[in-house]
């Protein structure tokens, strides 16, 4: 592949790579961090990466928002000039659901803290083993 080919590849795909970096940051937080709140933050970063990925799939070059005017005849709407509404719909609900799951995760964390007095995973493991 020539140099121009690589540059074209980067221009065409670099948005995905940004989300992949974000996903890796979130996954790293979920795997490595020992504090449960940091794990939840990692989960949220991962969710955000997926949301951005879906929204970027919806874009079409030079296209308008998926809001039609009443006066535009429906037969005249060309799908290439209006961005794909479907990923927006999916992510609209996903954002609110991610807030709700965040609430449940924090409630579980509060209960764990009430019981063990710590949020560090290894300390909780020790307490569980000794109990």
């Amino acid at each position: 592949m020539t140099a121009a080919g690589y540059i074209n590849l980067i221009i065409a795909k670099y948005n995905y790579w940004i989300y992949i970096v974000l996903m890796c940051v979130g996954l790293w937080g979920m795997i490595v961090k020992r504090n449960l709140v940091k794990k939840i933050i990692g989960m949220n970063i991962l969710q955000t990466a997926i949301i951005l990925f879906y929204v970027s799939i919806a874009t079409k070059k030079g296209a308008a928002l998926p809001i039609l005017a009443h006066h535009i005849g429906a037969h005249r709407t060309d799908p290439a000039t209006i961005i794909n509404p479907l990923p927006h719909v999916l992510m609209l609900t996903a954002i609110v659901v991610s807030v709700a799951t965040l609430g449940v995760a924090l409630a579980l964390t509060i209960n764990i803290y009430k019981r063990y007095g710590t949020l560090e995973e290894d300390e909780i493991h020790d307490l569980m083993r000794n109990a």
Binding site: I11, S56, I57, A58, T59, K60, K61, A74, P79
Partner: peptide
């Protein structure tokens, strides 16, 4: 990026863009 003929934009989404206004009378697709 921005490819109008990507798989996500080819199956049901053109139907929504073409017909949602006449089928539901809602401009916001």
């Amino acid at each position: 990026w921005g490819d109008p003929s990507s798989p996500a934009a080819t199956h049901v989404s053109p139907h929504y863009i073409r017909h949602s206004l006449e089928e539901t009378a809602v401009p916001n697709i």
